[in-house]
Design a protein around this nucleic acid. Structure first.
Length: 781
DNA sequence: CCGCCATCCCTTTTT
DNA sequence: GGGATGGCGG
């Protein structure tokens, strides 16, 4: 069956003859030195100008990757080879897409903003899917479910199948299904063994049921935006041909992060005109855990024979020592394509490694260092703290609050994930799309209006029996005696409101309608009555939501945007230190970068090692590489000797990644606290081994020392593997009694204050009160 | 229907 | 230690 020709791009820039983008760009071409080519180095220029056939650009950190991508688009437009709507450019994040739009606009004028097919995989996937929705069993106005909706839906399916949600959590099934979708697997294609891994062999069937249910709800989850697109292309040659014909040029950003589904999707499209240009850096592949497959980058030349491969190795960001340290570090990974970054710039300051006593001192020392730099004129916007895990952030926040040092945490809870926003959106969804059961359920009793589980159950039963959406089932029910009079009336009133609001869509501006809905439903009221601390902020957020709606032409457009891109607005202009995870830092750069927590177990993270072994270690090392290469002028690494993990103090050993740094390019600094108790020697031991692998004598000594300090067999397996003992509760009889004098390898002498199984609270003579594990203590006196 | 308490888990996270 | 979640009791 032939798909209707896509109604062509509403957002197509003005026709070329009208002095539009192409004309302007061509005029530019005639001038020697078209502006987008100005200042490019030879490799960058080659990457921009190699327009015919497949191109792989291996762009190291700070080598001008985005510049190349944007210049290339400008160049394609300028050369007249394609118009803006014939170029497909995909990124992973909305931020990256936005940035690229701006930069293209800066190069070729505002027409660059009009590129309709520049966006994230998901937004482009959704856009294509909407045009052919009926071919995959959806309607063009399908809703996009987020993770929350997805899990609630799975819960219902598990319940319907009589599967114990306790034993087989919906969350876990969601992860499983996501994994399959990431790999481009439809239910029928999931291997039997794998499908059987959940709920005694029912995983595959549940996946199929879920997909079916999504179709009934006229909904797609994030994975579907690609997977269903893939299915569309696979099953409908005419549709595929049409899109292949349209996209004369394809560009892919952060190619190393593509998962298999994305890769297959790209490959199908690119095998038409073969003008695909992928830009990426295998050394910065840090999303393996969510399905990204670095092999995609290694496979490129195989899939596209004769591909041009261009390496960008000239770094414009960091000083020499920083670059050398990073290069040495990443060189320890096997299985890389191999790039060597270099710079013509100054060597600058060596990255520093500082040992500190514990996380508290770490935060203190870093806070002081920042203040000192600030006094010397360093802007706080150029300062960042990059952590491995978000729990590390709190210590810094607390410290900075007491110091009065302004900071911002990047990647906290997202705007659209907040309960009040999700509630408000559910109201809008119910109104815009009456069949949206998940939205209905979310708000039917929010605010509380006496329509609880009992009522909902009845509606559910009826909906299932009659295979109707919940709203319709409810409408039928209020005409019967099924419900008790009170809930029946409440439900009747609510449904009447829904109808009124739906009718108003046509006549009322959507942001006004939203305000009306939130007022009339009693939702705003609910928060106004709430006297808890967050209530005011939630009302603020709701206002912000309504404000942001004004930017969209209609309700449907707004909902589409919101399900794909909603982000917290960062409207503040004040200078602040940024605190974020290493993952969130990719693509950013700062003058001064602090990298705390370089300890075994935390970084590399134990779990990564346990679950993915060598591959896990290498991904962690790439993360370390990403961290160091964020720094323009100063990279400052820290490791603490003691860290509290899950509420218990543990002694840690420095990260093996510190050993991977070249001694010539790193300066070792001792913070005063680390010398406490005469244990600085342990670190000095280690420092001797600097520049060599983690299999050095120094490393082994450090490990031996730890093993010796931990008499328990569980602990001897290696650092930080004491989980087995943590669980042992009060049932275990402690060999220590309250008041006993004890000695701790790191905290020194102390007195037992409290005994709780193998967890002891000890008042240390010098280090104060700490909770420690029994196995770290020795009896004295 | 709400709120309190026990229990469980604890890396990274976009769309 | 702390947050999220789910069960149970008022």
């Amino acid at each position: 069956m032939a798909a209707p020709p896509p109604h062509d791009d509403e957002v197509t820039p003005p026709a070329p003859h009208g002095g539009g983008i192409a004309a302007r760009a061509l005029a530019g071409m005639r001038r020697p030195g078209a502006p987008w080519l100005d200042g490019l180095n030879p490799e960058q220029r080659a990457a921009v100008e190699a327009l015919d056939g497949p191109v792989l650009v291996l762009a190291g950190a700070g080598t001008g990757k985005t510049r190349v991508l944007t210049a290339r688009i400008a160049h394609i437009l300028a050369s007249g080879r394609a118009r803006a709507h014939e170029i497909l450019a995909v990124t992973f994040t909305n931020k990256a897409a936005r940035e690229m739009k701006h930069r293209i606009a800066a190069l070729v004028g505002p027409a660059g903003e009009g590129m309709p097919w520049l966006g994230t995989f998901h937004s482009i996937g959704a856009k294509i899917l909407r045009r052919h929705a009926e071919l995959v069993g959806l309607k063009s106005d399908f809703t996009i479910l987020d993770t929350d909706d997805q899990i609630r839906l799975l819960k219902q399916i598990l319940q319907a199948e009589n599967i114990d949600d306790k034993r087989w959590p919906a969350r876990q099934l969601a992860i499983l299904i996501d994994g399959w979708k990431n790999r481009g697997l439809e239910p029928a294609r999931v291997g039997a063994g794998e499908a059987g891994a959940f709920a005694e062999g029912r995983g595959g069937a549940l996946y199929a049921a879920y997909q079916q249910r999504l179709k009934v709800l006229n909904a797609a989850d994030f994975g579907d935006l690609l997977l269903e697109g893939l299915r569309l292309f696979r099953e409908h040659d005419d549709v595929l041909a049409q899109w292949r014909g349209r996209f004369r040029y394809m560009l892919v950003d952060e190619y190393q992060d593509t998962n298999t589904a994305q890769y297959l999707w790209l490959r199908l499209l690119a095998q038409g005109q073969r003008n695909i240009c992928c830009v990426g850096d295998d050394d910065q592949a840090i999303y393996g855990w969510r399905g990204a497959d670095v092999d995609n980058i290694l496979r490129f030349e195989h899939d596209f024979p004769g591909a041009t491969v261009i390496r960008l190795e000239r770094n414009y960001r960091s000083t020499g020592h920083i670059l050398a340290a990073a290069a040495h570090l990443i060189a320890r990974n096997e299985g890389r394509l191999g790039k060597t970054l270099f710079t013509d710039g100054a060597m600058g300051d060596k990255p520093t490694v500082t040992g500190v006593w514990d996380s508290e001192e770490e935060a203190r020392v870093i806070g002081e260092d920042i203040e000192q730099r600030q006094r010397k004129g360093q802007s706080l916007d150029g300062v960042a703290i990059l952590v491995r895990a978000s729990f590390q952030m709190r210590e810094f926040e607390e410290r900075f609050l007491t110091l009065g040092l302004p900071y911002r945490v990047i990647g906290g809870p997202r705007f659209y994930e907040r309960a009040e926003i999700r509630d408000a959106l559910a109201y809008l969804r119910v109104v815009a799309q009456p069949a949206d059961d998940l939205a209905f359920e979310r708000i039917v009793n929010t605010p509380k209006r006496g329509l609880g589980d009992a009522t909902l159950q009845i509606i559910h039963d009826h909906a299932r029996a009659a295979s109707l959406p919940l709203t319709q089932a409810a409408r039928a029910l209020i005409e019967t005696e099924e419900l008790k009079p009170k809930p029946r009336q409440t439900l009747r009133d609510l449904l009447a409101q829904f109808s009124r609001w739906s009718a108003a869509i046509a006549t009322t501006p959507h942001h006004e309608l939203a305000e009306t809905i939130l007022e009339e439903s009693g939702y705003t009221d609910m928060w106004q009555k709430d006297r808890s601390a967050e209530a005011a902020g939630r009302l603020e957020n709701l206002k912000e939501l309504i404000r942001s709606m004004e930017e969209f032409p209609d309700l449907a457009g707004f909902l589409e945007h919101v399900s794909l891109v909603m982000e917290a607005e960062t409207g503040d202009q004040a200078e602040r230190v940024s605190i974020m995870t290493l993952h969130a830092a990719k693509g950013l750069e700062f003058d001064v970068v602090y990298l705390p927590g370089w300890e075994e177990g935390l970084f590399p993270h134990q779990r990564s090692l346990d679950e993915n072994g060598r591959a896990g270690l290498e991904e962690e090392r790439r993360l370390a590489y990403v961290g160091v290469t964020r720094a323009r002028r100063f990279a400052k690494l820290y490791f603490a000797t003691n860290r509290r993990i899950h509420g218990l103090w543990q002694t840690t050993i420095p990260s093996r990644f510190l050993d991977d740094l070249p001694a010539d390019h790193v300066e070792v600094v001792e913070a005063e606290g680390a010398r406490f108790g005469g244990y600085a020697a342990s670190r000095f031991d280690r420092m001797e081994s600097f520049g060599s692998s983690y299999d050095t004598p120094g490393w082994r000594r450090a490990q031996d020392r730890r093993a010796a300090a931990q008499p328990s067999p569980a602990a001897r397996r290696g650092p930080l593997t004491i989980e087995g003992e943590l669980v042992a509760k009060s049932s275990a009889v402690s060999g220590f009694r309250q008041g006993a004098r004890v000695f701790h390898l790191k905290f020194g002498p102390g007195t037992v204050a409290l005994v709780d199984g193998n967890k002891l609270t000890v008042d240390f003579d010098k280090a104060g009160r700490k909770m420690v594990l029994e196995s770290f203590l020795q009896k004295t006196g």
